[in-house]
Design a protein around this nucleic acid. Structure first.
Length: 581
RNA sequence: AGCUCCGUAGUCUAGCGGUCAAGGAUACGGGACUCUGAAUCCUGAGACGGGUGUUCAAAUCACCCCGGGGCUACCA
């Protein structure tokens, strides 16, 4: 488990300066920065989403990674809203994202009352001043060209660009025009501020990129104060610089933006004429997962077309969906560390996520018994009046989780799948004439199978039980199978939502002729059913998690559960090496 | 096509010229153990995209080829 040894490894690094194994490429770069003293040994990371959608598991990995890197180096992590486009952004997304990062455990309040949540819009004044500086230096100009004309001027990947006719305006004229842009004297689209770079640069982004555009639109944070708004490339590096970000970690598609990021920062100076703080942008490959979709547009479609019940549907791999399903932030952290980070395009198999979720839940969930598809069992040699309380451990190995009492009586229910009339050789649950152990209770033997006269379906089983304690060491009737059960007296009915992966196809976006991604939706991704659960669960705390023995891990859903209708989400099934055969 | 990034088992990742007939995780096969066909523990099979060169020595360096991604929004 190389990934978990970072802290140890890092200690070694600071002592002797030899390169270390097991560091991902980002940490290797950071080590190099620290070695050369580029940032004075400081590490300050950030995650800068635009508040125009929902955060998903890929974002979660990035957030958690940025956070962990900062923490491992005794550094700082900022969460920053990159809110420079008032047209697409909404306050509701801001609030949803804040909820997500609090749940992830990366929100921090400082002693002076501030916290680690920032807004790009908080720096609008500074952005403007820097832009004026660029104009004064003759490095930016106001362009009256239309959007179409600018597009035309930009050329293409095979054609060089052409210079705008407004490119040669004097500095004085540009300053005047830019100030008037700020004062809202011009309509939308009539003017932009452009950097004066190189219209024949092979990187299209360097062909006089737009810095400011006119948008007479109120902003969720700054209200009506501005009618010019900065473009991403202008704002982003400045935000990082202002906050003192050392490593600005982003996804691969921003790789081509790095030259621009660097160029802007290299042109600007502070009051003393010194270059402003210059973070290092580092790009990594975003996380893709098998059997799901994470693209914003595609997820929107799932919601709009009602394939799922909203953004926080537990089948969605949004942070809200994962949280509602019952997955813990700790499991996501484990997942992030397990998959690592690189620059290769990847589709991570969802079984790796499943594993991380199970591993996390295994040690934190008490066991209970529940029967999803009940089959009635009558114990023929047990008195109808008799009831027995049996004490059972809540966890097979963690004794601290304590014990509880369950009731054994004449009428019981077992899982339909745990009985087969004509079983294959290697089936070791219950079948006619065979014995099976009831978990935490007695061994029973199937004496008789009762069927519905009309339908021929099995309606109940008549079994005898062996009245000695089932855990008796002298038990020579060695039975191979142990199944779960619940007695009528000890059970209540609850709603159970069996959640499965949303798509049957590994990569739903790779569609076959004439199909769309939605055609690959798993029709059984959500199965709602009633189940018998141990009656003490009616007093369980909402939001608690349990392992229903042999079935999976379940989450007492806090939003939809009511006093008379408990709702349990199956977070993840147990690993099952039997049904795969 | 131009620029650019990437290519290690089914999947994810380590590797920084010899200690690599390539390590770990997951998935998969076999077995042990077990009052969860879980967990745990053994164990097996499985990869350097291809070529040429540099070198005593190449997964690691160079070049070429092949394959994949990104870039032509007044989005981020």
């Amino acid at each position: 488990m190389a990934q978990t040894k970072y802290t140890e490894l890092l200690k070694e690094v600071t002592d002797d300066k030899e390169p270390v194994e097991g560091l991902n490429f980002i940490r290797t770069i950071i080590e190099e920065h620290n070695r050369t003293g580029r940032f004075g040994g400081k590490v300050h990371t950030r995650f800068p989403p635009e508040p125009n959608g929902w955060l998903h598991i890929g974002h979660a990995c990035s957030i958690l990674m940025n956070h962990k890197i900062a923490m491992d180096y005794d550094g700082i992590f900022n969460f920053r809203f990159d809110d420079t486009n008032p047209i697409t952004e909404e306050e509701s997304y801001v609030n949803a994202m804040i909820e997500d990062i609090k749940w992830l455990g990366v929100y921090k309040e400082y002693e002076n009352g501030s916290n680690n949540i920032f807004f790009g819009s908080g720096y609008f004044d500074q952005f403007y001043e820097y832009a004026e500086q660029l104009v004064e230096k003759g490095l930016a100009y106001v362009d009256d060209s239309s959007a179409e004309e600018i597009k035309e001027q930009r050329g293409s990947i095979t054609e060089l660009g052409t210079e705008s006719p407004y490119r040669t305006r004097t500095i004085e004229e540009n300053i005047d025009l830019f100030k008037r842009m700020k004062k809202c004297e011009f309509p939308n689209g009539s003017k932009v501020l452009r950097a004066k770079l190189d219209m024949s640069h092979p990187n299209l982004l360097m062909r006089d990129p737009i810095i400011y555009r006119i948008l007479h639109t109120p902003h969720h944070n700054t209200g009506d104060k501005w009618c010019i708004y900065p473009m991403y490339d202008w704002a982003h590096g400045l935000e990082d610089s202002i906050e003192g970000i050392t490593q600005s970690i982003c996804t691969l598609e921003f790789e081509v933006h790095r030259p621009l990021y660097d160029w802007f920062l290299n042109q600007l100076t502070d009051e003393e004429g010194k270059p402003i703080f210059h973070p290092q942008q580092i790009e990594f490959a975003k996380v893709n997962l098998s059997h799901t979709v994470l693209g914003k547009r595609v997820m929107i479609q799932l919601v709009k077309d009602k394939h799922v019940n909203g953004w926080d549907d537990p089948r969605m791999l949004t942070i809200a969906g994962l949280r509602r399903r019952g997955v813990t932030a700790e499991a996501l952290r484990k997942f992030m560390e397990t998959i690592g980070v690189s620059k290769r395009d990847k589709i991570i198999d969802q079984s790796i996520l499943d594993y991380c979720i199970r591993e996390d839940l295994n040690n934190r969930c008490p066991r209970v018994m529940s029967v999803l598809k009940p089959l009635k069992v009558v114990i023929t040699n047990y008195s109808a009046e008799k009831k027995e309380e049996l004490e059972v451990q809540n966890h097979p190995t963690i004794k601290e989780m304590g014990a509880r009492k369950i009731i054994f009586s004449k009428t019981l229910y077992i899982e339909q799948d745990d009985f087969m009339e004509n079983p294959p050789e290697d089936y070791y649950r219950l079948s006619p004439g065979e014995k099976v152990r009831l978990k935490n209770a007695y061994i029973i033997k199937c004496e008789n199978v009762i069927k519905d006269e009309k339908t021929g379906e099995i309606s109940e089983l008549h079994c005898s039980y062996e009245p000695r304690p089932a855990d008796s060491a002298s038990d020579d009737s060695k039975v191979r199978g142990t199944i779960h059960w619940i007695s009528a007296e000890n059970s209540i009915i609850a709603e159970v939502r069996l959640i499965d992966r949303l798509f049957l196809k590994e990569n739903p976006m790779e569609t076959e002729e004439g199909k769309v991604f939605a055609d690959y939706i798993n029709p059984q991704s959500l199965e709602i059913t009633e189940a018998l659960v141990e009656s003490f669960l009616k007093d369980a705390k909402l939001g608690s998690r349990f392992q229903f023995e042999r079935l999976g891990y379940f989450y007492l859903e806090p939003i939809d559960s009511t006093e008379n209708n408990l709702v349990f989400n199956r977070i993840i099934s147990l690993r099952d090496s039997w049904s795969k055969r």
